[in-house]
Design a binder for these strands. Structure first.
Length: 490
RNA sequence: GGCGACGUAGCCAAGUGGUAAGGCAGGGGUCUGCAAAACCCCGAUUCCCCGGUUCGAAUCCGGGCGUCGCCUCCA
């Protein structure tokens, strides 16, 4: 593979929420990219919606690396907040135990979804000192005030409040919810530090005992690991307001850099029956059970089958449809796994398609990480490769045995490349293999004997028997095999 | 009500000025003892509707209809 040069690297364009436009990507420091992604508050088991940003950022970070950047990906756990405290007390467990349990589950699922661990996974509870430092700076700069033991950010001190969500700052006052907090000077103000309440986790600070509010932890941790200027900052669109806007104003005020984020990258939400999946609505499809049933690679591929900014409608049918499509890729993978490296050019239009695949794939990802398009290119490559391997070409021109073998080699290389870019195939044997039981092996042998004496009635009877055990018989020139019937696992 | 996004074949989904990707489902073939897999062919004269700009628009502008998200729990 050729090494990416500057021109190629700058070919990447990314949509930025703040400007509402897609524009060429350039990092703050040449050759390096710092990414901060808002992770989860681990108070409940994850649903499919949570997996989307994980998978998307895995692809984004990998593609930036492929284009020659040194990437640092930071994804946090907000392991102290209202929901967590509420849930822990309801269930009668310690906050840290609840957080640890769910965090562990995320990490395990991440692995099954072929997501590489982020470079740094900071926890809010381990960065209280950084948080206190930021709150101190904000108080000093008069961007914050104390009130009844709490510390609030003073929104009026941020002249451009509303910039990120493109919303009128004044109108937001009127839009404040009922139940106004009397401790706040302005309904838009938000808590940086919450005073100590017996039974809740708390830390000592110069402004009294208590715990961090929501939003500060991300500002503090992003600053700790990525400095004052963040190249890419992401999360679900539902975080744009208030979370990211509040984070933006406090970071810019506290660390004195504007803008502190170059590109805001927000993914669309996973919906079901047309509405957003959410933990509080409890309409989320449990991620662990889906991964168990369909396999990590299928769930991952499904999440990448639409562009990351589009909403993605989840249903069992949609996932099954993708599983079937994925089968095409998987079959070619299995059929070419031992192919020799490509040695020479391929004939016909199909040959062009197969040989150009790497460029097409990378170009698709350059354009705002368009994974839907990347998959389209992949499927076209699969079709073209299958045609050549079968000895067919659209031009009707000759396809020699050497061409066919060569096509297998190209297919193998292309699939390896697509796997590296998108994550297609499970890494472990257990996810990879579908061992056929001895019973089925025996029936296959019996059927082979029946077929050899042209007793097709018996052969078909055995095939039905195998089908009843859940396996599909496939006859090929090299003999018969069985594969799990309708098994969508990757 | 305010702000934002979206509306493309039966379903999912790319495409942001140059004449509609890809997948699933469906129909017809080739191959096969028959299947399966694979491959080939078939499907939107058209991109929610109505106007406008342009030589040319799914793509830009205006209006309308519909769906979704956010408006201090949220990936």
């Amino acid at each position: 593979m050729p090494l990416p040069d500057e021109a190629e690297a700058s070919a990447i364009s990314i949509y930025d929420t703040r400007s509402g436009t897609e524009r060429p990507f350039t990092p703050a420091h040449p050759g390096q990219v710092g990414i901060y992604v808002c992770g989860v508050t681990p108070y409940a088991p994850p649903h499919v919606g949570h997996a989307r940003p994980l998978v998307i950022w895995d692809v984004i970070r990998t593609h930036l690396e492929r284009r020659g950047y040194l990437v640092t990906l930071v994804q946090n756990f907000t392991d102290v907040d209202d929901k967590l405290i509420e849930r822990a007390s309801r269930d009668g467990v310690a906050v840290e135990d609840l957080a640890a349990r769910h965090s562990g589950q995320y990490l395990h699922l991440m692995e099954r979804l072929l997501v590489r661990p982020p470079d740094i996974m900071p926890r809010a509870t381990e960065h209280v000192a950084d948080i206190i430092d930021l709150v101190g700076r904000l108080l000093e700069g008069e961007n914050a005030y104390t009130s009844q033991g709490d510390v609030y950010f003073q929104v009026a001190s941020a002249p451009d409040y509303g910039l990120l969500p493109r919303r009128d700052a004044e109108a937001m006052k009127a839009g404040a919810r009922l139940d106004p907090n009397p401790a706040k000077r302005d309904p838009r103000d938000f808590a940086l530090w919450k005073r100590q309440i017996p039974g809740e986790p708390s830390w000592r600070s110069p402004f009294g005992g208590g715990r961090p509010g929501w939003h500060v932890e991300c500002s503090a941790m992003a600053h700790r690991y990525l400095g004052t200027e963040i190249d890419l900052h992401g999360g679900g669109v539902d975080l744009v307001f208030p979370h990211h806007e509040n984070e933006r104003v406090q970071s810019e005020a506290g660390y004195g850099v504007r803008p502190h984020v170059r590109f805001w990258v927000h993914n669309g939400l996973v919906t079901t029956d047309g509405t957003k999946m959410s933990k509080s609505l409890e309409n989320g499809a449990d991620l662990a059970s889906l991964v168990d049933r369909f396999g990590g690679p299928v769930v991952r591929g499904f999440l990448l089958s639409a562009h990351y900014r589009s909403p993605l409608e989840f249903s069992m049918e949609a996932l099954s449809d993708f599983a079937r499509a994925y089968e095409r890729i998987k079959r070619l993978h299995l059929a070419t796994i031992n192919a020799a490296p490509p040695a020479r050019d391929l004939p016909a239009e199909e040959g062009e398609r197969v040989m150009n695949f790497p460029v097409r794939l990378l170009r698709a990802l350059d354009r705002d990480f368009n994974t839907a398009r990347a998959f389209a290119e992949l499927f076209e490559m699969v079709r073209a490769a299958n045609a050549l391997i079968s000895g067919l070409s659209s031009s009707g021109g000759p396809v020699t045995d050497r061409d066919r073998e060569n096509a297998r080699g190209f297919a193998r290389r292309n699939l390896a490349m697509a796997d590296a870019a998108l994550g297609l195939f499970a890494r472990t044997q257990t996810e990879e293999q579908n061992p056929v039981p001895d019973e089925v092996e025996g029936l296959l042998e019996a059927r082979r004997l029946a077929r050899s004496r042209r007793d097709f009635t018996e052969a078909d009877r055995i095939r039905d028997q195998i089908a009843a055990l859940g396996y599909q018989v496939e006859d090929t020139p090299d003999g018969s095999t069985a594969r799990p019937l309708g098994d969508p696992r990757g």
